[in-house]
Design a protein around this nucleic acid. Structure first.
Lengths: 370, 370
DNA sequence: ACCCGTCCCGTTAGCGCTAACAGTAATGCC
DNA sequence: GGCATTACTGTTAGCGCTAACGGGACGGGT
C-alpha cells in the first residue's frame, strides 16, 4: 500500500497511461508530442491506453516542465464588436489547444507614444508573443516597440508584412474583384464604391480589386463614383449621402465593410429608396451586422475565427522553433474567403418602377413575432 | 558555483524573492495568497522584494501545485456580438488573474436535448465550473444537466436564481424605472415600450420598472402603448412599426435593449420622423451599437465586463471553498448600472414643428471626413 | 572480432509553486 | 512558574510532466 498522494483528484495522469500500456511515462510523453523514435507497436499500445483511460495531459504541468510559452498577448483596438468577438473565440480555441493563456489589452489611442506605452506593458508581463488583429496590425509604433522589446509578433490582415514577420490574411484584392464581378453580372454598370480607411493596405487592395473587375467589363475605374470612408458606420453615412446626391446616382453601392454598407442602407431608406429594388448594397467581412440589418447584406465572408486560430498557431510554432534555435523564417498564410449572397442585392432597373410607398415600411416578419 | 538549472529562462522565481526578503519561499507564498499569520514587518519586506524584482508568480506552477481549477467553461448563445465581446474581455481578465483557462463552447440550439448534449462536452473535458451568460443563464436543460454532472455554475443576469446557486446581475427593475422617470421628466406622457424576450425574467423586471415609474407620475400602465419584442433587431422593427402605426403614436419609445432601439430609429427615419425631434428613442445595455447608430442612443449602461469578472470570481471562490470542504453557500452580486444620456432623447413637442425636409438626410460629420 | 552509429526506451532530476506538518517564540491562564 | 495556546516561519515532499542523458539491442563496416 503506497501512501496516498497529497491530493488524489482522481484525474488520470501520464503514469496511469504508462502502467496501462506497459511502458515508461517518458515513452507516453514521446508518443503524445510528436513521437519521434517510437516503435509502431509501442505507439499503438500507448494510444490505445490513452483512449481507454480517456487521458488528456495536464497543461499546467506540461508548460511548467517544458518551460513553454504560457502567455500570449493580444492588443486590440475597437474593431467592430462583431469582429472582435469572432476573433477572440478563434484565439481562445487555439490557446486552449496549446495550453496557453491569452492576455488581452486594449489600445484605443492613435497616438504613437501612448501606443508604445501600452505595448510596453507586455514587456513587464511575461507574454512571449503578441497577436495583432487589425487595425493595430498596421500600427508602426506598436510593431517597432515590440521589436525593440524583442517579442515576436503575428499580424492579421496586414497588407505589407516585413521580411521576417508572421502574417495571416485573406486575398482582399481577389475578394473585392469577385464581388464587383457579381454586381456587374447582375447588370449594374454604375457602381458606387466606398473606400476603407486609407491607413490600411487592405483598403487599397479592395479598391484595386474593384477597379480591376471594372476594367474586365470594359469600364473605366476613373469614372466610377468612389467616395472615401473610414470603416465606421458614421463615415458610411456621409459617403453614401455624397454618392446618392450625385447628379447620376449609382444603381449599386459596394462598401468596403459591413458597417458602412449598413449605413448605406439606412441612408437609402431615409431617401425613400428600397433595397435592393432601387439600390443594391453590398458589404465586406460578413460580421453579425450583415444579418442584423434589414435587408440582410450580400457580403464577402472572412473566416475571422479561423484567421485568429491560424495566427496563434503560426506564432506558437515560431516560438517553438526559436527556442530550439532553428533559423528564423517569415511566414504568411492566406485563408479562403467566400461570397455570400443575401437579400440586399439584385438586378438593377427597378430603380423607377419599384418605388412604391408601401415599400418604405418594414415588413412584419412573422418569424419574429410568433 | 551551483550547477546551472535545466533551463534558465531568466524569470524571477519565488526563491529569488525569498532570498531578497531574507525569508523562506513558503512565507513569500503566504504573503502573496491571502497571507494569514504573517507578521506585518515580514509582509512588508516580502512585498518590497516582490516589487523590486518585479515578480509575478508562475500560474502553471501555482495551479499544478495547488491542484486548483485550471479550466473554466463558458457556454454562450448568440447574444449580440457586442455583448459577447465585452463579456469575453471581462472573463479573460479574471481568468488571467486567477491563472485559469477559459474553455468556450457555443450552443445556438433551443432544443433541450441538443443543449444537454453540448453541456455534456464539459464533463469529458476537465472543466471544473461553468459560466452561463444570458440568454443561456435561463436555460433549464443546461442547468439541470450541469447539476447532474456535478459541475458548479454561475449564472449572469438570471432572474430567479435557485437556492444554492451563484448569480451576478444588475437591478433591471430600478434601471428601467430610472430611464422611464427620465423620459417623464423630459415631458413625455405617451411612452411606447418594447418588451424583451418573454423567456427572460429580466424582461419582466424591466417592464415592471417601466410600469412603476409611470404610476409614480399618476399614469396608468395599462393604457401605455406596449408591444412585445424579442431582443432582436428584426423584432424591434416590427414592434416599432406597430407602435408608430397606432392612431395616437407615442412621443418616445423605450426599447428593452439597444438592438431594438436601433430598429426603432430606423423605422422612424423611414417614416420621415426625426430623432429625437419627432420621436425620442432610448435603449438598454449600452452595447457598442448604441454609439454606432445615428443619433447615438440614450441608454442604460450595464457593466458587462465587470459582470463577467464578478461571475468568474464568484465561481472560483466557490470552487476553493468546495475543495476545502467549507459549507456551500449561495451568492448573488448586484452591480451598479448607469443612465447614459446621448442624442436620441429630448423633450417632446417638436413633433410637428421640427419636421423639415432637411432633417431627413444624415448630417456630414466633418470629424469623419477630414 | 571489434568499433561505431542508429534506434528505441528507461532513469534521473528538476520546472516553480504550495499543502501539510514541524518546529520556535511569544502570549495567556491558573 | 508551569503548561496550554496562539502566532509565526521553516522544512519536506510532492503536483504531472518533460529535457537530458544513459544504455541496451541491433546492424554494418573494417
Amino acid at each position: 500500500m503506497n501512501k496516498p498522494s497529497r491530493r488524489s483528484r482522481g484525474t488520470t495522469t501520464i503514469e496511469d497511461v504508462a502502467r496501462a500500456a506497459g511502458v515508461s511515462a517518458m515513452t507516453v510523453s514521446r508518443v503524445i508530442n510528436g513521437g519521434q523514435n517510437v516503435r509502431e507497436s509501442t505507439r499503438n499500445a500507448v494510444l490505445e491506453a490513452v483512449k481507454k483511460l480517456n487521458y488528456s495531459p495536464n497543461t499546467a504541468a506540461r508548460s511548467l516542465a517544458a518551460g513553454e510559452a504560457t502567455h500570449i498577448g493580444m492588443l486590440y483596438a475597437n474593431p467592430s464588436a462583431a469582429y472582435l468577438s469572432q476573433f477572440l473565440i478563434g484565439a481562445l480555441h487555439a490557446a486552449r489547444r496549446a495550453g496557453c493563456h491569452l492576455v488581452i489589452e486594449s489600445c484605443e489611442s492613435e497616438d504613437a507614444d501612448e501606443q508604445a506605452e501600452v505595448t510596453r506593458r507586455f514587456a513587464t508581463s511575461d507574454v512571449e508573443g503578441v497577436v495583432l488583429p487589425p487595425p493595430l496590425s498596421e500600427s508602426q509604433p506598436i510593431i517597432a516597440e515590440l521589436a525593440a522589446i524583442g517579442i515576436p509578433v503575428v499580424t492579421v490582415a496586414m497588407g505589407t508584412p516585413a521580411e521576417d514577420s508572421l502574417n495571416v490574411r485573406i486575398d482582399d484584392y481577389a475578394a473585392a474583384a469577385e464581388m464587383t464581378r457579381y454586381l456587374l453580372s447582375l447588370g449594374h454598370r454604375s457602381i458606387g464604391f466606398i473606400k476603407g480607411h486609407p491607413n490600411h493596405i487592405a483598403s487599397h487592395d479592395r479598391a484595386r480589386g474593384f477597379a480591376a473587375a471594372l476594367r474586365e467589363y470594359g469600364l473605366d475605374p476613373d469614372e466610377a463614383p468612389i467616395e472615401q470612408g473610414y470603416f465606421t458606420y458614421r463615415s458610411g453615412l456621409a459617403a453614401s449621402e455624397r454618392l446618392l446626391s450625385r447628379p447620376k446616382p449609382p444603381s449599386a453601392i459596394f462598401a468596403s465593410n459591413d458597417d458602412m454598407a449598413a449605413a448605406a442602407i439606412s441612408v437609402a431608406h431615409r431617401r425613400g429608396l428600397t433595397v435592393p429594388g432601387d439600390l443594391s448594397v453590398v458589404g465586406f467581412d460578413d460580421t453579425s451586422l450583415a444579418t442584423t440589418v434589414w435587408p440582410e447584406l450580400t457580403t464577402v465572408r472572412q473566416p475571422i475565427s479561423a484567421m485568429a486560430e491560424a495566427a496563434l498557431e503560426l506564432l506558437l510554432s515560431d516560438l517553438r522553433s526559436r527556442r530550439s534555435g532553428a533559423a528564423r523564417h517569415s511566414a504568411e498564410r492566406v485563408l479562403e474567403h467566400e461570397l455570400i449572397v443575401r437579400e440586399s442585392s439584385s438586378a438593377p432597373g427597378a430603380l423607377w418602377v419599384g418605388r412604391s410607398r408601401r415599400s418604405r415600411t418594414a415588413p412584419v416578419h412573422t418569424a419574429d413575432v410568433g
